[in-house]
């Protein structure tokens, strides 16, 4: 800063710390709650400091069963979530890379039309057309399947746009040099284009992984079989137990476990995450 105003610096730090505390508050409470036995709830207060049954609860939830009407353990649902998240992420990246490649590096009839058809998916979020989409997937016999969990969500205008931008910024002379060097469309794609798009792909990977992991409504609708439950949607099923029987400690532990992977990705790959977030909104 230009001038030194200690009180202003103090206010800045204080505001930020307060902000962090407020942001962390619900997670802190959940963490505390998960360390108390189920019987500690419903007696007029939630405990404010750690109890001693934390290890037991977390172990049970993670390895044995999540409780509250769900008999599968969290790690199993985590696996489903992981399969769905990775399926959506890789699927989106793969088909968007291919279609952006076609749109930027080839000339063919109806190219603009194709671009607009892809663009329209932006206007049709799944929540908006939920009933007919469900019917389509039901007709295709994809309920309770990994294909049903991932395939309908992998069309992505955003990723296609992002790769298109990225490809358009590659100088034309580079393409010409590659053609003179004897690289056809396939070699060019794998030898030049993919390596040059590496950071973009990685950044998008972070964003899409979070998107995929956090899917809620879609898995909720199309899975009725425990074997395909994903972690985020299972919370809803856990909450629909009659009020008095809810084991809050288990719900809190499950909630925290459901948050953990994407939060770890954001913090661990902060730079890529920020880049992905900013790029995909351009």
């Amino acid at each position: 800063m230009i001038e030194n105003r200690p009180w202003l610096t103090f206010v800045s730090h204080a505001t930020l710390l307060l902000g962090i505390a407020l942001v962390a508050l619900p997670v802190w409470m959940a963490l505390v709650a998960s360390t108390h036995p189920a019987s500690a709830f419903g007696v007029g207060h939630i405990p404010l400091w750690f109890g001693d049954s934390g290890v037991d609860t977390w172990k049970t939830v993670l390895l044995e069963k999540a409780g509250n009407g769900i008999d599968t353990p969290v790690f199993f649902m985590m696996l489903n979530s992981l399969i769905m998240a990775l399926g959506i992420t890789f699927g989106k990246i793969a088909i968007s890379l291919l279609s952006a490649y076609a749109i930027v590096f080839f000339r063919f009839p109806f190219r603009d039309l194709c671009f607009w058809i892809i663009f329209m998916t932006l206007m049709l979020p799944v929540e908006v057309r939920i009933v007919p989409t469900y019917e389509v997937v039901a007709n295709l016999d994809l309920l309770n399947s990994y294909t049903g969990l991932t395939l309908p969500l992998i069309a992505s205008a955003t990723a296609t746009f992002l790769f298109r931008q990225c490809f358009l910024s590659i100088p034309g002379e580079l393409v010409e040099a590659a053609r003179i060097d004897g690289a056809g469309p396939f070699r060019f794609f794998f030898d030049i284009l993919l390596p040059l798009s590496r950071t973009n792909i990685a950044a998008l990977f972070v964003i899409l992984f979070i998107y995929g992991w956090n899917q809620y409504l879609w898995p909720l609708l199309i899975t009725t079989d425990d074997a395909y439950y994903t972690l985020v949607m299972s919370i809803k099923r856990m909450l629909s137990v009659t009020d008095g029987d809810i084991a809050w400690n288990q719900i809190m532990a499950t909630t925290l476990l459901a948050m953990l992977p994407p939060v770890a990705v954001v913090i661990g790959m902060q730079k890529l995450f920020v880049k992905g977030l900013v790029d995909s909104e351009k």
Binding site: P171, E173, L174, E176, A177, A178, R179, I180, D181, G182
Partner: peptide
């Protein structure tokens, strides 16, 4: 690639 030519570009176009 089949013409057996080589080209040097204005912006070099190095990979």
């Amino acid at each position: 690639a089949e013409r057996d030519i080589a080209m040097v570009f204005q912006n070099y176009a190095l990979y």
